[in-house]
Design a protein around this nucleic acid. Structure first.
Lengths: 251, 251
DNA sequence: CGTATAGTTGATTAGTATCAACGCTAGTGG
DNA sequence: CCACTAGCGTTGATACTAATCAACTATACG
């Protein structure tokens, strides 16, 4: 798992497509601007931002950075999926968040990233150095406002996840997870119901504070109760939205 | 618990001491400036900030605001202790954070606070309206930077708490909690070892995702192992710091 | 001094983890 | 094209941690 066991790439993925003009280099930015941190910026500002940007493609299961690495860069997902996680010395793992198109990560404290970032699927990222970004903040005050808003959004989500981890049952956790993915899909213009589950059972387990066996059993249970269906690996159909939502909220 | 069952106060606590000159009105601000969000500001800037401030005293177990209330204000603790929590419909509770002198809360999303804030001890708070604060952000860019930094700090803490809630054992959770309180005490100039535990066992349990019985048993266990001592109610002595830290980290 | 509340301890249960086996799918090489 | 293999997911049996239920003790309060 991760870059340790990966064959060396024939190129450094971070070096692909150095920053340049926006329209040709970062086509996806237009698509994801609503959710990305470049939302609310004028065309000129986005162009200015593009000058400090670097676009790169990563394969699946690629470690972008590790917890403790110097936090030089801020990343924005053009498309693909990324997981952020923390590890304990004995290997226990907690996934902090699953990220998709338009999400940013690497928001930082000085002194190193506080989680590891690994791609789930093949992923395209925009990379910004914190140093250059900081100097841009003076030019574009709205960018600072935007980064603050993204940090608050992450904070609110983290607090909701604390409630899930500390107080919800396995069934409620899995239901919450599916509701969350569905809402996220709707926000990005995708349908609410057949949702993509690009992550493994192990990832879901480490996100919900469960084991893979419990996650698997809970999915089976929800299928038996006709609340969901899992027609193909990597996809879920939410057949009974109301039941799922009520379960998630613990009503 | 909370304002619902409290006799009505003989005055509105929020109306005490309306904003005015700093030195007389907010003596504690000088003490807590290192950690508070007014750190890094010039004397003039702090004075400017003081004009939009309102100081107020609250009794113990007082609900400052509830989850879902309109998020009009940002609060800063002059002295005292506050807990933030989320509730599920059936009463299950997750405490998001314990806050002390210099901490701020009410960082907000539009559309309401996403947790309830309740005092633990009698507490003095500074209150700022988000509206007035927003207009100040234009005047004092450093203030925005400061609020961003506080949000990031909270985010990092929340992520660490997710690891605790999702993957640590009861013993590790309690050890982590004590280590956390001790480090926080040191940051505010207090000794690392006899630490104050102003919150109830129920609060600790709801913070760590445990029951009061398990918290109590775990304390007893740590006492038997000579790692801590609980001489008086509300105080803990950390007799074996290394053992406690190793437990907390799961090594 | 009596009552109410918080905290501790014990007995039992329940929910999830652990251990183990098996099936499915996808990729590999003959 | 098909058997072989590896990894992922599912299911079953059992163990264990923490929750629940219950009783008791200590502390604070009127």
């Amino acid at each position: 798992m991760g870059s340790l066991h990966m064959p060396p790439l024939d190129h450094d993925p971070l070096k692909i497509e150095p920053g340049g003009e926006l329209p040709t280099q970062c086509r996806n930015c237009d698509i994801v601007r609503e959710v990305a941190f470049c939302a609310d910026l004028s065309h000129d500002e986005v162009k200015r931002l593009a000058t400090v940007r670097c676009h790169a493609a990563f394969p699946a299961s690629f470690t972008v950075f590790r917890e403790g690495d110097a936090s030089d860069h801020l990343f924005s997902i053009s498309n693909g999926a990324v997981k952020l996680y923390k590890l304990m010395p004995d290997g226990r793992r907690q996934i902090i968040d699953f990220l998709f198109s338009g999400d940013i990560f690497g928001l930082g404290v000085d002194g190193g990233y506080c989680y590891t970032a690994e791609t789930i699927t093949p992923t395209h990222l925009c990379r910004f150095t914190h140093r250059k970004l900081d100097s841009l903040l003076v030019e574009i005050p709205r960018l600072e406002r935007r980064m603050y808003a993204m940090a608050i959004k992450d904070l609110v989500a983290a607090q909701e996840q604390m409630l899930l981890l500390g107080r919800k049952t396995a069934r409620e956790k899995v239901a919450s997870f599916l509701v969350q993915l569905s809402r996220r899909a709707v926000q990005t213009g995708l349908p609410a119901s057949p949702i993509a589950l690009p992550m493994s059972r192990a990832d879901i387990a480490d996100y919900l504070g469960l084991t893979i066996e419990t996650v698997s059993r809970t999915f089976t249970q929800l299928k038996r109760d006709a609340i969901i269906a899992l027609p193909a690996s990597g996809h879920a159909v939410l057949d009974n939205w109301d039941a799922l939502r009520e379960l998630a909220e613990g009503a």
